[in-house]
Amino acid sequence: MPLIEAHELYRFYHNGDDETAALRGVSLQVGHGEIVAVTGPSGSGKSTLLSCLTGLEEPDGGYVIIAGERITRRSEAFRASIRATRLGILQQVPNLLAHLTVTENIELQMHLAGMVNMNSIEMLLSTVDLRHRAYGYPNELSGGEAARAGLAVALAADPVLLVADEPTAEVDRKTESHLIEHFKKRRQAGKSTLVATHSDAMSGIADRVLRLRDGKVVHD
């Protein structure tokens, strides 16, 4: 059984009488222990696809199944429970709570998934090169540090599936290499990663590359 399946996803946005088709019949599957990269130019629908796959947005057509559970057109409480227990999510908008330190943000995500492990927190902070910011607040972080802290939160519960939007966009080459090695170790452990990326290095380790253009899959 695939970890996540999307069937013929459509998503439209409206601005007055103007309609933009962000997704036009996109289907995909991600299996256990796979790294799948979603590529394409800006505006091709990558971020919208990830939002629909994780239940943060409802598609206008089609549906999504995660670990055998259909999440499309289900209650927000149900979708939130699936996200907390099955997924790690990194969006381009930082997923940090302003009143919590970096460590506390990671702890909270672990708590929501029913697991707190301080050793794992230290390892995560090392992976994203943020041990020096362990007790910093989001407003004290640079843009790159905030992006790396957000990724640590997404990885906090060691999710079976990580869904990440440009996880290496705000990091230097050394940190990107560390993250790529982390994603490889996840694959070896049977865990999966679905990543929207412009990085050739990130795409280079993927088992499959899905290319979008104008809301359609043009290569898989």
Rank of each mutant, 00 (worst) to 15 (best):
R79Q: 11
T103E: 08
E145M: 07
G61L: 01
G88E: 01
V171C: 10
R70C: 08
S27P: 03
A149P: 03
D214Y: 04
V116E: 08
H198C: 09
I205W: 02
E8G: 12
L130V: 04
G136F: 09
Q91L: 13
S42H: 08
L3M: 12
H32Y: 14
R213Y: 09
L56V: 06
A21H: 12
T72P: 00
G114Q: 12
P94C: 08
T197P: 03
C52D: 02
G55N: 02
R187Q: 15
A189S: 14
L212H: 05
I89L: 06
A149Q: 03
A6Q: 05
H219C: 12
T175S: 12
T103G: 08
A134K: 09
P138R: 04
L3D: 06
Y63T: 09
H7N: 12
E69D: 14
D158G: 09
D200N: 15
H32C: 11
L179V: 08
E122H: 15
S81N: 13
A80Y: 03
V209R: 11
V38H: 01
I65T: 12
L161D: 03
A206F: 05
G88A: 03
A156Q: 00
N15Q: 14
P159V: 09
R74K: 13
T127C: 10
M202D: 05
V163H: 00
T175A: 12
A98M: 11
S199I: 11
L162K: 07
V160I: 15
S177C: 11
R187T: 11
A98R: 04
E5G: 08
L23G: 05
T168I: 08
Q91V: 11
M118H: 15
S44Q: 03
V160E: 11
A189L: 15
H111C: 13
H198P: 05
S177P: 02
G16H: 04
A189E: 14
M123T: 15
Y137Q: 00
G190Q: 13
R148Y: 09
A196V: 10
S75H: 08
S120K: 14
H99P: 04
T193E: 07
L212P: 02
Q91H: 12
L124F: 05
Q29M: 13
E58Q: 08
I89Y: 00
P41I: 12
L3S: 04
I4T: 02
L210M: 09
V128T: 01
E57L: 11
T193L: 10
H32P: 10
S192F: 06
S75E: 09
I4G: 00
H198D: 09
S81Q: 15
T168M: 07
I65V: 13
T54V: 10
G55Q: 02
V102I: 03
E19R: 11
E166Q: 02
D214L: 04
A157R: 09
T85V: 11
H219L: 14
I82F: 06
N15S: 15
R70D: 04
E170Y: 10
S27H: 12
L97Y: 08
D200C: 11
I71E: 03
E140I: 06
S192N: 07
F183E: 03
